[in-house]
Design a protein around this nucleic acid. Structure first.
Lengths: 349, 349
DNA sequence: CGGTAGCCTTGGATCGTTCAAGCGGTGGGA
DNA sequence: TCCCACCGCTTGAACGATCCAAGGCTACCG
């Protein structure tokens, strides 16, 4: 058969559909974009032709004419060791799904090690994306300010810690509330000597989470002196910090700024033959894979990443609409996933 | 200032550059795409103009003219529970980076729960991507066959298990070699009763990995009877299988088809007060986050995902080149990341 | 039966780039 | 001397969609 000779299928164009349906190109365009402008039977005829030819508007042509790409840029940073990027994975999934609902696709671009702005600049100048989702605002890096100054639409996942008066839209998770929730959960289970293992002071996120532990303790008139430690975000550091705290302050529970640190605590407990949950309680942060599969299960603060994605896309749509709507920043509350490490119970969730 | 009034910057076009450099549009186009066609000083003049105006070719226009998008579609499947998608995360990072080198970007699209082909079809008909990277070929799902029949360029991560004579390009990791490597590592450390915990027979990947364990055991004239178990890929199943095997066959070591199953084994050891590495050795598969952070560290087979990405992009370029080059499938060898669970040693790698 | 308002439809222009053909000028071989 | 190939650049025409302004049809009214 002749049609079997050429395997490469040529996509139908607007004109093809128009010819088949016996109307003009503009009518087909209206059928796609403003169906109410057409008489019902004409609309149906066009739709039939679209179905027959398997027509779908050519993206490049549409993009060129409308000066849009319906693409959202997301910088996919090089994998950092630790559990943090398992969280990113979950977030990206949610974002991709939400973008689909809004008619957008997610474009990944790599983080240049040297210049964090390089990727953004290229995509922007080539008008390859309509907007960005910026995820690494915590370092006080210049992306948000740079994009804002340039007038490029974007929404940040993360508060502008170093510029509280920034006017760009952002969505973040209330880390203090998460740590407070974790601490109160342990208080309810009868613990009073609850230790904190967090990140170094330079991390505003770490300090934010720490403040949640602090406020929960103080709300119950409990002393926190000697019960806090600030270290690097590694398993090893967490293990060492836990050992020191156990020796010097004898806590019965730990709240950690990350699952990584919590794993360190579990390791120290394991070495000392202490049973997580029974002898000493542990709560982590991020509800990573690790928290799910480690023996007894790690109770952990879970970020509502699905909701974060929803809010981000909502703000993107506002920002990209005509006229642009800049919605304010939004803080979402995390939840607590309770497993065996914070008390008795079946360890399989 | 006047320029502060209009924040929205209008991108320079080819014509703008041409005017500034005093040449025609085509010359600028050549300067961007075929620099050798220009006289050096003309080229320099154009390049200066490009730099002054911050010009970058408009993607939509280029895409329209060249009938290309320089976009690679990747279906980002809904997060499956378990450690598998942490591996995907690593893979996507590598892929994004390799695509950058080749001048491509990665476009994510969600997996429609109902019709696995829907997303592919839409992007293809809209000519929104040049090619796909297909990652979930293991289920015997129809994407590969469908894309091939349609003449759509794609490269699969994963062998065509259910169609060994398929002609499309693919890249995969030799799971049998990985399991063999793990088994031989344990044999070297003196173990002879090495058990296997794998997936159900329906999984060709699982059977492939199992065959590696089997061949290593047989190569050393060791019996495998009663030493194998096939279960669901959950922590719980792994734990139960390990308990049964310990009771009935008294193995001194376990090789598992996944880190998830290995975590189950570790849990059973923990319950029975057996020290991983010292009393019983355990090796997992995938070298996930979990393997790194669990106490004593989990020895695990590591897939060379960076190399997989390199090979995939190489095949993509071949497939998209003129004339198209269809390279054969390629099988890559994994490596073994040795940690505490397979024997004595410091558990921090 | 003619006029007009209202609703669809039509052809043309446009977005910014690349492709194909063509320009004058120069040099080398026959 | 003539012809042709080559160089470096310019010109007009696509690519396929959407926007714009003008045209045609129906239906209604006088």
């Amino acid at each position: 058969m002749a049609r079997d000779v050429r395997r490469v299928m040529v996509q139908a164009t607007l004109s093809d559909v128009a010819d088949l349906a016996g109307v003009s190109r503009q009518t087909v365009s209206n059928a796609m974009n403003n169906p109410d402008l057409l008489k019902p039977d004409t609309l149906q005829r066009v739709r039939d032709a679209v179905a027959v030819l398997g027509y779908s508007p050519n993206r490049a042509a549409r993009n060129l004419r409308t000066r849009t790409s319906r693409l959202i840029g997301l910088r996919f940073t090089p994998a950092q060791e630790g559990t943090a990027n398992a969280m990113m994975d979950r977030f990206v999934h949610s974002l991709v799904e939400e973008c689909r609902v809004a008619g957008y696709h997610v474009l990944l671009f790599p983080g240049d090690g040297v210049d964090p702005l390089a990727g953004y600049d290229d995509l922007l100048r080539a008008t390859a994306v309509d907007a960005f989702v910026v995820t690494d605002t915590y370092l006080g890096n210049p992306q948000a300010a740079w994009l804002e100054e340039r007038g490029a639409p974007f929404v940040a996942f993360g508060r502008p810690w170093d510029a509280p008066d920034a006017t760009h839209p952002w969505v973040d998770v209330d880390g203090a509330a998460g740590a407070r929730m974790a601490t109160e959960h342990l208080l309810e289970r009868g613990h009073t000597r609850i230790a904190w293992i967090g990140w170094r002071k330079e991390s505003p996120i770490g300090e934010d989470r720490r403040s949640g532990w602090l406020s929960a303790m103080h709300a119950h008139n409990l002393s926190t002196s000697g019960l806090a430690s600030r270290v690097e975000d590694t398993v090893n550091s967490g293990a060492e910090a836990a050992a020191v705290l156990l020796d010097e302050a004898a806590p019965t529970a730990f709240v950690c700024a990350s699952d990584t640190l919590a794993m360190g605590v579990l390791h120290t407990l394991w070495i000392r033959q202490l049973a997580p949950g029974a002898d000493v309680a542990v709560v982590g942060f991020d509800d990573s894979q690790v928290a799910q599969v480690v023996p007894v299960g790690l109770t952990s603060v879970r970020q509502p990443l699905e909701d974060v994605a929803v809010e981000i896309v909502k703000r993107l749509q506002g920002r990209l609409g005509v006229p642009p709507v800049v919605e304010p920043g939004k803080l979402l509350s995390p939840s607590l996933t309770i497993r065996g490490s914070s008390g008795p119970g079946d360890w399989i969730s």
